[in-house]
């Protein structure tokens, strides 16, 4: 490892959608990243996958401007902010605790089902937090990025992705409950 104390900047920004699809047979939920706002249905063995939601988002990597080291975030689909929709959600509990210490919490959102067994690395989450903390006056407040695995019930989550309104779709779309 180099001695460089990385100074991060955003790289490889990619605009798209977090696609949530659900199988009416096994009732499982999957997520993937798509550049387009598609609404296809398809069969896979016994499973019939249909898209329940497309949430606009963007993903990115971080690059050190001192040593050019690239930290890729292939497991990341975007950053979600909690709208306090479920009082008993783990994210809400963590968020309240951090906010009491003037630390704002955002959720790193990734791929399902992969992340259930292989969550987004803690190290990567810390680098994301570091990126945002490097450029702010941390005496005032800090940023903490946490994993979306903490969302207690994804099908009821109404967190919102930070996204560029008017870029891919012309108007903002409100997230809905995943049925």
């Amino acid at each position: 490892m180099s001695e460089c104390r990385h100074r991060w900047e955003m790289a490889n920004i990619q605009f798209g959608f977090v696609v949530f699809e659900k199988c009416s047979h096994c009732n499982n939920l999957r997520t993937y990243f798509s550049l387009d706002d598609t609404w296809d249905e398809y069969r896979e063995g016994d499973c019939l996958w249909s898209i329940v939601e497309n949430a606009q988002t963007f993903r990115f990597d971080l690059k050190c401007r001192e040593c050019n080291h690239l930290e890729t975030f292939q497991d990341l689909m975007g950053l979600l902010y909690c709208t306090s929709c479920l009082p008993d959600c783990e994210v809400e509990v963590v968020r309240k605790r951090y906010e009491a210490e003037k630390t704002w919490v955002l959720v790193a959102f990734g791929f399902l089902p992969q992340a259930r067994t292989r969550p987004i690395e803690e190290r990567k989450l810390d680098i994301l937090s570091e990126y945002f903390n490097q450029r702010r006056d941390t005496k005032r407040s800090r940023i903490k990025i946490i994993s979306f695995n903490l969302i207690s019930d994804l099908s009821r989550c109404r967190g919102e992705f930070i996204h560029d309104v008017g870029m891919l779709s012309q108007e903002p779309e409100e997230r809905k409950h995943l049925l």
Partner: peptide, 22 residues
């Protein structure tokens, strides 16, 4: 940090974004 951010965006996403970069 400390910048004034000038925009025509009004969607509530601007608040967490503004917060992230202070």
């Amino acid at each position: 940090s400390g910048n004034l951010w000038v925009t025509v965006q009004t969607h509530k996403s601007i608040v967490p974004a503004a917060n992230l970069v202070d």
